[in-house]
């Protein structure tokens, strides 16, 4: 778990630096899933930086594409892309665009408009089953992504098809673009909703590395249906002044605050 903790810290630090340097936003969305991204790339996903298109690799789809910088950070740490690409994020003639892009080695699918990731992940799960492959298909969703009708269309169909090779992860930080989710679209108790739609569901603390590892290494939850992991997270986790705020969805950390924030992240136990 030490490696996961170090990678999670690196993702948080890179996310702060990249968004500051690029003068972009969504740092809160990156930090809320940083721990899960770290565990996925360190311990769970069967992917190979030397062969990013390895046929039987696991497929990871980030449906909350606005948080792509966190994945770029993990890809740089694991050797899929050079580390010096990170500071070209959001810059003219850069290597890394604001929303996650399949033009980057190691990225399966481009998103950015919400509601696109899960339907494609369902298609990939069907193709894996057709190819008789045991590869896993994991799709990371968010509060906003769960507002989209197309996400629920895909949930219904995945259950109908009993796609046990598919896992939907919800980075459930309860904040979306214009407010706290309970003020915008209150999904209330998501677990019984998803269970009624035909998923097997596990709830975890999305910042507890052990719990994350335990959940992801015991998939599928049930053999006859798709899995969902509801990860209870805190928007912008790791920057106390911005935690659980709508503001952290926008803007970047000001120049004069970056080093103090990074120092705090580095020193956190």
């Amino acid at each position: 778990m030490k490696q996961c903790k170090e990678l999670a810290k690196q993702i948080r630090i890179d996310s702060v630096r990249m968004t500051n340097h690029g003068r972009s936003g969504h740092v809160g969305s990156m930090l809320s899933m940083a721990d899960m991204i770290a565990v996925l790339y360190e311990k769970i996903l069967n992917v190979d930086p030397k062969n990013p298109k390895m046929p039987d690799r696991d497929r990871f789809i980030l449906s909350k594409g606005h948080a792509g910088a966190a994945v770029y950070s993990a890809l740089a740490a694991k050797g899929f892309i050079p580390k010096d690409w990170l500071m070209t994020y959001y810059c003219d003639n850069g290597k890394l665009m604001g929303h996650i892009s399949h033009k980057v080695p190691g990225v399966e699918f481009s998103t950015g408009s919400l509601g696109h990731g899960l339907p494609v992940a369902v298609g990939m799960a069907i193709a894996a089953r057709y190819a008789k492959s045991n590869r896993k298909i994991i799709c990371m969703s968010s509060d906003g992504d769960m507002n989209e009708g197309s996400t629920w269309e895909a949930i219904m169909f995945a259950a109908q098809q009993k796609l046990s090779n598919l896992t939907l992860v919800i980075d459930y930080n309860q904040v979306q673009a214009l407010g706290h989710s309970e003020e915008v679209i209150d999904l209330r108790e998501l677990k019984p909703k998803l269970e009624n739609f035909g998923f097997a569901v596990k709830e975890i603390d999305g910042h507890n590395l052990e719990e994350i590892y335990e959940a992801f290494s015991n998939l599928p939850i049930m053999n006859d249906r798709p899995s969902a992991i509801i990860a209870h997270t805190i928007k912008c986790k790791g920057i106390p002044a911005l935690e659980d705020t709508v503001k952290s969805h926008y803007g970047f950390i000001p120049d004069d605050e970056v080093e103090a924030i990074i120092k705090r992240i580095e020193e956190e136990e």
Partner: peptide, 28 residues
Amino acid sequence: PERYYNVGVAEQNMTGVACGIAMEGNIA
């Protein structure tokens, strides 16, 4: 039957699912 899918009345999902199937070397 193993290459036929009815997603229900859900054209956005139909197109996304087709894309996912096609990206794995198939024609959807």
